[in-house]
Simulated scan of single mutants.
Amino acid sequence: MNVHTRLRALAAAAVFATLGAHAHAADAGPSVVIVHGAFADGSDWARVIPLLQAKGVKVTAVQNPLTSLADDVAATRRAIDSQPGKVVLVGHSWGGTVITEAGQHDKVGSLVYVAAFAPEAGKSTAETGEGYPAAPGSKRFVADREGYLTLPEAAMREDFAQDVPAVQAAVMTATQGPIQSKAFADKVTVAAWKTRASWFIVSNRDRMIDPGLQRAMAKKIGARTTELAASHVPQQSRPADVAKVILDAVAATRQGS
Rank of each mutant, 00 (worst) to 15 (best):
residue 250 V to F: 06
residue 58 K to L: 09
residue 159 D to M: 02
residue 57 V to N: 03
residue 145 R to W: 05
residue 59 V to Q: 07
residue 189 T to H: 14
residue 39 F to C: 09
residue 64 N to Y: 05
residue 126 A to D: 00
residue 255 Q to E: 13
residue 144 D to Q: 08
residue 48 V to A: 06
residue 129 G to E: 11
residue 240 A to V: 10
residue 20 G to W: 00
residue 106 D to Y: 12
residue 69 L to C: 08
residue 109 G to Q: 04
residue 66 L to F: 10
residue 129 G to V: 07
residue 64 N to E: 02
residue 220 K to Q: 10
residue 249 A to E: 02
residue 215 R to I: 07
residue 195 T to S: 13
residue 210 D to I: 09
residue 63 Q to M: 12
residue 28 A to H: 11
residue 110 S to V: 06
residue 146 E to C: 03
residue 241 D to Q: 14
residue 9 A to V: 09
residue 218 A to S: 13
residue 42 G to A: 15
residue 250 V to R: 08
residue 198 S to H: 07
residue 121 A to Q: 01
residue 130 E to K: 15
residue 62 V to E: 03
residue 98 V to C: 13
residue 96 G to E: 11
residue 151 L to K: 06
residue 245 V to M: 02
residue 137 G to I: 05
residue 72 D to C: 09
residue 79 A to D: 01
residue 170 A to P: 03
residue 8 R to S: 13
residue 203 S to K: 10
residue 77 R to H: 13
residue 194 K to C: 03
residue 226 T to A: 05
residue 191 A to V: 05
residue 237 S to W: 04
residue 76 T to H: 03
residue 183 A to R: 07
residue 245 V to G: 01
residue 82 S to Y: 01
residue 4 H to L: 14
residue 202 V to Y: 01
residue 23 A to Y: 08
residue 227 E to M: 09
residue 211 P to A: 11
residue 82 S to E: 12
residue 216 A to I: 08
residue 228 L to V: 01
residue 192 A to W: 12
residue 165 P to N: 08
residue 36 H to K: 09
residue 163 D to K: 12
residue 195 T to W: 09
residue 186 D to N: 09
residue 178 P to A: 02
residue 183 A to E: 01
residue 130 E to Y: 05
residue 133 P to V: 02
residue 155 A to L: 02
residue 205 R to Q: 15
residue 167 V to Y: 11
residue 98 V to M: 11
residue 243 A to N: 00
residue 253 T to W: 05
residue 38 A to T: 12
